[in-house]
Design a protein around this nucleic acid. Structure first.
Lengths: 246, 246
DNA sequence: ACCTGAACACCGTTCAAGT
DNA sequence: ACCTGAACACCGTTCAAGT
């Protein structure tokens, strides 16, 4: 196990690099995000990041344990961008929808970063803050704790899972993305009705939909079902008045 | 654009490699899946694959355009494994649940491959066959075409998105996976109630749930909502008898 | 204290040459 | 027809040396 890099607060001297930049976690993170946009999700390498910062690549290892540590920091940064400035209205369904769409949008704004961070639990401040917010919305709305936890987990995983899936398409190099799009136009829309009757019958609708994210539909379906659960939980609670609870 | 490698049917001579193996798409695919299991999702490289096959790495380029082409072939293979031997019962809700869980399970059986193929549209035979099956289940159940297409897309994307998300955890090297698990135990369960009251209040439930997939919950919520849609669509259709349709 | 430079052990892909 | 071998342009990370 390599030893922990020096934290931002502990730093004393800030000697500039050969290129004149003064390194910091923030500067490295911002430069990494810029490189991901410019060069794609495979384009973030320690060597290129060093060059972009005007520093030797090995200097990065004083700030991050390695590329994996940097990627977890990027993940938490994306979550921070999603939650930045958010205010709840008190209407749980509207608030959840809004948060889900914000997380999805924050990831899609940095699709190459989203691909890299998909499925990683960072446990860092922005992530825990988002989790606390979502659990608070559900518990305040009246979901009993076991339901709140189950619905919370399905909600955040659905948002992140669709973000990663949709980001994967956007993050492809332009050529590959066009090739994937062309698959729909060329292969699916022209499958013969004899072998693929259902695809053939709905080809127009399929092609129109396939280049749009399914997340808004899936999110609304999720909220429908959550509302049903809440109604049933409230009805069950009304059967057992507060004074008679064990 | 590199030229297309020779297809399996077009091959004439089958000269064995230096290592004695006779190359084929199937052999390369199976060897690639084995390497992914043994060395993780970053462990599939052209050089290692060559060594494992007893061939020079450059020989692979006569079978696949490059690593990306190989990855799309692996994606279609996973979909084939999911659908292999599946039989519908005619009960749309049971059939969809079964297919969703099968796709999820097929991907989780090869998590390192799932990570690599997440979000890629292959347009190849097993993928189109699965799409035809799902659309058929929905249209036969009575979903009007626009609903059938919307629900189909949300269904397949949700299955693949959760598969990729859950696979990302399983595909981590053992050390990183344990570190991610430890994040839950150490960070989340011990956040103070003063700053994170909702996480603190449900910490036991959270830790118990977090190492299990949220897909079964999300899938059941999805099916709840789809059932509501179908009921409403049937009611609307009953309002307009067939003879009066435009 | 912090950054550098060399070193080590790797990559994917191309293309002319061999069999 | 198919595979090989060399070549090219890259990787992440470590560690002793410089400032």
């Amino acid at each position: 196990m390599p030893k922990r890099p020096v934290s931002e607060a502990e730093r004393r001297r800030r000697r500039p690099t050969r290129g004149g930049a003064v390194l910091s976690h923030r500067l490295i993170l911002d430069t990494a995000l810029r490189m991901l946009h410019e060069h794609g999700s495979a384009g973030l390498t320690a060597r290129r990041l060093g060059t972009a910062l005007g520093a030797d690549p090995s200097a990065l290892y004083r700030y991050f344990r390695g590329m994996d540590d940097l990627i977890l920091a990027i993940a938490d940064d994306l979550m921070g961008r999603a939650a930045d400035g958010w205010q709840g209205t008190g209407a749980w369904r509207d608030d959840l929808r809004d948060l889900g769409l914000r997380v999805h949008a924050a990831y899609l704004a940095h699709p190459q970063a989203a691909v890299l961070t998909a499925g990683r639990v960072s446990g860092r401040p922005h992530e825990t803050a988002a989790d606390e917010t979502i659990l608070g919305i559900l518990r305040t709305a009246g979901f009993p704790d076991p339901d709140a936890v189950a619905v919370y987990q399905a909600f955040i995983d659905q948002a992140l899972a669709f973000a990663a899936l949709d980001a994967a398409t956007l993050a492809l190099p332009a050529a590959a993305r066009e090739a994937d799009h062309a698959v729909w136009g060329a292969t699916y829309a022209r499958l013969p009705a004899r072998t693929h009757p259902h695809i053939a019958a709905t080809a127009g609708l399929l092609v129109a939909r396939m280049n749009r994210s399914a997340y808004p539909t899936a999110l609304e379906m999720f909220l429908d079902s959550a509302e049903g659960r809440l109604t049933r939980a409230r009805a069950a609670a009304a059967q057992v008045p507060p004074g008679r609870r064990p």
